[in-house]
Every structure is written in C-alpha cells, then in structure tokens.
Nucleic acid binder design. Sequence first.
DNA 1: CATGAATGAGTCTTCATTCAT
DNA 2: CATGAATGAAGACTCATTCAT
Lengths: 203, 203, 203, 203
Amino acid sequence: MATPDEPRAAAARAERRRQILDAATEVFAELGYHEASINAIIEKAEIARGTFYLYFESKAAVFDSILDNAMHELRARISRIDVDDPSAPAPQVQLRAMLVRVLEYVVGDRLLTRILLAGGHTEAEAARRLDAFFAEVRAIIALALHHGVAMKLVRPCNQELVAAALLGTVRGVIEALVAQDSPPPVEGVVNELILLSLRGVLA
Amino acid sequence: MATPDEPRAAAARAERRRQILDAATEVFAELGYHEASINAIIEKAEIARGTFYLYFESKAAVFDSILDNAMHELRARISRIDVDDPSAPAPQVQLRAMLVRVLEYVVGDRLLTRILLAGGHTEAEAARRLDAFFAEVRAIIALALHHGVAMKLVRPCNQELVAAALLGTVRGVIEALVAQDSPPPVEGVVNELILLSLRGVLA
Amino acid sequence: MATPDEPRAAAARAERRRQILDAATEVFAELGYHEASINAIIEKAEIARGTFYLYFESKAAVFDSILDNAMHELRARISRIDVDDPSAPAPQVQLRAMLVRVLEYVVGDRLLTRILLAGGHTEAEAARRLDAFFAEVRAIIALALHHGVAMKLVRPCNQELVAAALLGTVRGVIEALVAQDSPPPVEGVVNELILLSLRGVLA
Amino acid sequence: MATPDEPRAAAARAERRRQILDAATEVFAELGYHEASINAIIEKAEIARGTFYLYFESKAAVFDSILDNAMHELRARISRIDVDDPSAPAPQVQLRAMLVRVLEYVVGDRLLTRILLAGGHTEAEAARRLDAFFAEVRAIIALALHHGVAMKLVRPCNQELVAAALLGTVRGVIEALVAQDSPPPVEGVVNELILLSLRGVLA
DNA sequence: CATGAATGAGTCTTCATTCAT
DNA sequence: CATGAATGAAGACTCATTCAT
C-alpha cells in the first residue's frame, strides 16, 4: 500500500525541503545567521514550527545545508585549468570561461552569495567549512600560478600571497556585483577582471 | 585636595576602559558579535557585571567603540596620494608608504583586524559604519584611478569596478596576513602587492 | 479535520489565559505591580517562563489587562441615573440598585479591587487609564448632582468638590469591605451608604 | 578641639539630612517609591552616592522617615474632640478648626500628601505604618461617632462603617485638592465638607 | 506527517548597597 | 565626613527545540 506512494512521497518531501531552504536562504541573506529566527523562516515558508524540525534537525543544520549547496555549485563551476591537454582551449580562454560561469551563478543567486560572503557566521561548523572552501580555492589559484611560473607564463612571485590577493580581487568584484540591484552583464566585468589580474601576474 | 586626584582618577578611568576594551576585543575577535556575551567579556576583564555598564552603556556600545577606533586608526594611515605638489615624493613612493603604514597597523593588531574583516555584525549601527568606511576607501581608490587615467599613468578602465577589485585585493592580502601566527615582514608583502596591482592598472 | 479542533483549541487558549490572569491577579494584589515578579506569577500559574510570554507580551500587559477587565466590569455596573423616563424606578431606587451591583462585584473579587484601589502603579499606561476611570465616575456623580440641584432635589453645592467627596466616601466603604475576611451582606452596607450620602446632599 | 564644634557639626548634619529628605520627597512624589532611584535622589540633593548612606541606611529608610514625618505632622493636627470640658468650644467648632488645620497642612505640602495618598508602596514597613495610621484615624472618628450617638447628637449607625466612609470622604476631598495646581482657599472647602458630613450623620 | 503549545536555558541590563581612598 | 568606583543579585524577556495530539 505504501510502496507505490513512496516515490511520490519522496518527491513531496524533497519539495517541502526546498521550500524551507528557499525561505531560510531569504531570511539568512537579509538578517544574517544570528538575527534570523526560526520564526521568520517558518513564517516565510508557511509551515508550522514542528514541521521545520521534521526536515532539519536544527537552525545550524539548514544554514550548513544552504552553504554546502552553494559551495557545491561553485565547486562545479571552478575547474583546474588544463595546460597539458593540447586539445584543450588556451589557458586564458579556460580562465575566462570559468570566471563567466562563476560570476553568472553568483549574480544569479545574489541571496546565496550574500550569505557566502557575509562571514561572521559564528556557526562553528559553517565557518570551518567556508574557510576550508576558500582555502581550497586559494590552493587552486596557487597551483595555477605555480604551473604558470614553471611554464614561464607567469612572473616569479610569492604564490601563496598572490593567490590570496587574487582571491580577494575576485571577492571584491563579486561583492560589488551583488550589492547592485541590476548587475551589469557579466562579460564586461570578466574582461576587466582578467585584464587586471593577468597583467598583474604575467611574465 | 581633590585637584591632584582628578587627573589620576581620569587616568584610572581611562585605564579601566582600556582594560574592558581589550577584553572585549579578544572576545569579539574569537566569537563574533553575537556569540560574545557580556559574561565572557567581564570574565576576561576580571570585573563585575555592573562595572562594565559603568564604562559602556551596552554591548553594542563597546563593539561600536572598538570598530570606531580601528576605523579611526586606519583612516589616519590612509591618505590621498598627492600628485600636484612637486616637492611630494613620487606617487608610487607615497602609495608604498601608505600600504606599509596600513599593513603594519593591521598586522600589529590582528584581533582588531579580524573583527573589522569578519563582517556579519548584525549590530546595525556598526554594520552601517563599516560599510561607509569601505565605501570611503573604495571612493579614494576610484579617485586615484581617475586622476591616474587623466594623467595617462593609468590605463582606461571601469574605475568603480577596478576600485572594488583593488580593495578586495588588499583585503585578501590582509586576511592572509592576520590568519598567520607569525606574519612575514610587511615590506615584502607590500612589494608583491604593489607589483601585482600597479601592473594591473598602469598604462 | 482541523475544523472541529479549532473551537476546542480556542477554548483551551482562553482557559490558559485565565489561569495566568488569575495567578497574576493574586500576585499583584499581594505584592503590588513592582514587587510582583514574572517568576512569582508563573510559579503560581504553574507554567514555564516562555508560556507566559505566549499569552501576554509583557508584565505590563497582564497588569493592564487585569485593570481593563475590572474597569470594564465596573463600568457595566455603573449607570447614569435616569430621571426623565417616568416608567423608570425612582432615582433613589436606581441609586441603591447600582450601589448593590457595584459593591457585590467588588466584594466578590476582592483581589481585583485591592489592585484597583492600591494606586501607585508606576506602570504608566495603567495609571493613566485608572485616573481616567475615576475621573469618569466623578463626572457622572457631578452630573447627577447637577441634575439634582436643577430639580431642587439636591441642595446647592460645589458639585465638583462634592462629587470628589462622595467618590471618596464610596472608596472608603469599599476599602473597609475588601479589607475584611468575611464582608457583611452588601444590603446593609448600602443602606448606611445611602443614608449617609443622601442626607448630606439632599435639599 | 572637637567639643565646641559638636553642636555646629550636629546642626550641619541635621541640615544635610533635611537636604536629602527634601530631595527624596520630590523624587518619591514624582515617581513613586519604586521608580524613584537613589541616583535621582542624590542628583537632586547634589551629594555623592556614599554620602546618602551616611545619613540613611537604605532607600526604604528615607521613605519611612518621610512618611513618619508626615504622619507625625498630621497627628499633631488631629485631636480628639473634647465634649466634656464645658470651657471648650462647641464640638462643631473644634471639628472645623481641626479640618482647617489638616487641610492647610496637606495643601501646604502637596508633595508629601501625594506620597501619603499614593498607596502601593510595596515597601512593607511603610505600608504597615500607613495602614496603622489610617486605622488610628478611623478609630478616632468611630469614637467620636460613638460619643455623638451616646449624646443623641448623632443618629444611630454602624459606626465602624461610617467612620471608614467619612475618612474616605476626607481623602476624596484631599485628593481633589492636591491634584490642583492652585488649590482654592481651605475655608470654603471645609464648609462643604462639614455640611456634607454632618448632615449625613447628625440625628 | 503536520501541528503549535509548551518549555527553560540563557541574555542583557538595572540599581541598591559597600568600601577603599 | 565625603566621595564615587565597584559590586552582584535580581529582573524581564527571547528563542531554539520538544512532544502530545
């Protein structure tokens, strides 16, 4: 009797989850982790208090889930630049494509991005994972620089430091983008970004 | 009879205030605004609950005071670059000196810096002022770019965007610095930073 | 499915509210507004701290609610005396009936009455409303005297002053009544009260 | 060396006490016992915090002292009416004189009177003594009625009850008086009061 | 599964009182 | 005597979480 309902039920469940996640995202983006109350979330999601805890075990859990999802999406858009495969596009082309993907995602979900960049989530677990994520990205950049230097494409430099700097550059641009109500087309922004960064590091 | 005591009393008061401010800075840096409890602050400062309220009217007030102080110090170290006065040092020299001043301050008070960069201080007033501060800095950078372009020193670019990017670059570097237990000498960092940024924008 | 529960839930809610109101009335009557602590109220009501705030938004709010209710009941028992309608009972009969109604209510809820007469409720809003209430009653008495004088039933007098005096008289009697553990039958008290007051003002 | 200073010192001490008492009276009259803070009192008295406790052992103590003083003054103005001494003025004359004395005092120190009538001083000791005072006055009135009945001057009545009523009458009038900014001459008020009360009780 | 009433630990803040100078 | 900095007990209120229906 339950069997044929199961997939339908699972779908319904996933939908519910989504509904809560969306409401929570809005609330967290607007108020930050601490000021955001379960109350605000369940009101926006139009569910009862207890229902919330049927889908997430705590306020921290929704927050982590939201962040995880965002980091997952970003990871999917960030790829190591392939310099070995001769059939791959030129490094600059790959870089540009990646930046376009990232910025488009980021601009497309400004709420999420705001949460991601807000920092100060004393929610311990989330803070740890977010740090880890940025460390990961920094490492990717550092590695790219390393390869670049080896290939004499990039000037010699303190790669760790420059990676941190470049990550900051991108974050600065993203912050500027998501702060605006109607962000400009991503293409132009990426042009500036690449111009600025590449000239800074190329040999 | 009371006269000679007055300055001493005032000094004692200032000292006490400092003691609280220092404790609060530590706590805010470690836990963020919300998780930081008055309890934690007074325990670290080794004072009684009431004493705290003798020196600050609320938790928000200490926090604001800490941030204000930091922003004040930073403002004092940030100066517009003088390109008109022929007796002034070359722009690049001025820029380097400024960056050294700023980074040295920032590295010297890592706790404060962490608070400054943490963001997500739902303390409304503080958030507002911090935003204003960064907007100010961004405006200074944008103006410098503007002059640079006019003087043909800087390549034409979207100055607002590049200013946001450069501010991000510096923040990225600062974050990397304050995250380390024993930060490297500031000079070298500034060299990298200048190399990276200037090459990115010069004509 | 939810429909039949709704009225039951509403009833349960009203009951809970009553339970808190009753506990609070006892506590306020015994200790006065300020000494009465939320703690004392919830202990007497045997509910948790949070539950209290589910039904009243603040200590002041319960207090106001209690007073409002008392004033409402009293207003319902106080009526202007009708001297125009020939089918109405004689003024003295109406007066007596009103006093019986009022005193019976007052004796029936001695706790409430004590709160009402206690005064000194620094709870600003409550104080304002209570003053307004007594002013209202005084005005009704003054008007009655006014009519009485016009009809030559009442001797000429400073009506405002006499109204204040008569209100005081009734309050004096009420205070005496509620101070006793087993108040005497209201009828006798009303007899004395009417005898005393009427002889004082009749022409 | 100390001896000749002693009286002077004692006088200074008494003056200081007075100064505090006056300030406290103002504050208590305006704010009531609970809202009145030691802070407000010492500010108005222009003394230091510790100094207050040199003259009164607690907030309750000042309050008690103020009330005691007021009750003392009133007691001095309230006297049993002498009906036995043939050389004494007629009872009604004595009564009138007493009421004039009382009302004049009461109008002359409206702040004190407000405190006296405010009630709701959860300050336990004060409440007890105030109750005792009013009980005392009520007893005096009851006794007078008793004598009056015995002498066939007063109609038979429930003397306790009527005493409570009459005390209420006077309180009602006093309240009306002290509520006004510029109270009317006491004589007229006493006339109304006597007319009202005597007619109510005379045989 | 959904509900929402109930819970109580935890927070900030006030203020009467003390005591070293 | 006078001072006022320091104290800490006590109070009102919030909000994440649980659980009986």
